[in-house]
């Protein structure tokens, strides 16, 4: 019954062959984005602090890093890591690192982390700089160490400012992660391309579109809910 109803909209034969694999692909996309977004947040914080450092060399390097990763296509960055690594196989084997970069999944993970770290660093830097100087001074006057002041006073407020742009960055990462399919990672896009190359049935692209839209809309709504909850003390009663 239900199957017949579904059959009115989609090609059941195609669904039997590729339906589960596409859901597997969706899971791979989710994992890839979740891991890189969290790792990117950690690295991004370090880069943001380096950007704000009084040491000119440190700040300069962080600026160059951010400019390089934000000013060039993710696809090109991924190709440098994935294809470029193969060229340094011998030294990498000697260093015992080849097993990491041999795998397309790891290459995508590394590239995406480096990329999103640059974007998140700028969001955090903006958040930190938006705070009045008195916040850090008051923390110092209370006798908090610089690290305590950072994690207990500055960062929580900076993150509130950065909540919305961070949500946008997460959604951009979900969409951008589709390029992983171009280096043989079977994420949602990868499975879709495989299914299309075998079946020549255009329908699979439309399924992928529906799945991506559902994913992005869900993440957007959940993020907005979280944002409302976290900023509830800032709204008038």
């Amino acid at each position: 019954m239900i199957r017949d109803a579904i059959g009115l909209v989609v090609d059941l034969n195609l669904l039997d062959r590729y339906g589960w694999r596409m859901l597997d692909g969706l899971w791979v996309t989710l994992k890839l984005v979740a891991i890189t977004f969290v790792l990117g947040a950690v690295l991004g914080l370090a880069v943001a602090l380096a950007r704000l450092s009084r040491n000119r060399v440190v700040a300069g390097i962080a600026f160059a890093y951010v400019y390089l990763f934000r000013g060039t296509p993710l696809l090109a960055q991924l190709f440098v890591v994935y294809y470029g690594a193969g060229q340094f196989r011998e030294p990498l084997e000697a260093a015992g690192l080849w097993w990491i970069l041999r795998d397309a999944w790891n290459c995508a993970l590394i590239t995406f982390t480096l990329n999103t770290a640059a974007y998140q660093a700028e969001i955090l830097r903006g958040g930190i700089q938006s705070l009045p100087k008195g916040q850090a001074e008051a923390a110092a006057a209370l006798g908090l160490r610089p690290w305590q002041a950072l994690f207990k006073v500055v960062l929580p407020q900076a993150l509130i400012v950065g909540l919305r742009p961070l949500g946008n960055e997460l959604i951009l990462m979900i969409k951008a992660s589709a390029v992983a399919s171009l280096v043989t990672v079977y994420d949602l896009m990868g499975v879709t391309r495989l299914a299309f190359s075998r079946s020549y049935n255009f329908e699979v692209y439309l399924w992928a579109a529906v799945l991506y839209l559902a994913l992005v809309e869900t993440v957007r709504r959940v993020w907005t809910l979280g944002e409302r909850r976290l900023t509830r003390h800032m709204r008038p009663a």
């Binding site: 959604i171 979900i174 969409k175 951008a176 992660s177 589709a178 390029v179 399919s181 171009l182 896009m189 879709t192 391309r193 299309f196 255009f202 692209y205 439309l206 992928a208 579109a209 991506y212 839209l213 992005v216 809309e217």
Partner: peptide, 14 residues
């Protein structure tokens, strides 16, 4: 909401 790569392939093949 769609990945740009998917939009491109949909426009191209579609």
């Amino acid at each position: 909401g769609l990945p740009e790569l998917l939009t491109l392939l949909i426009v191209y093949y579609g």
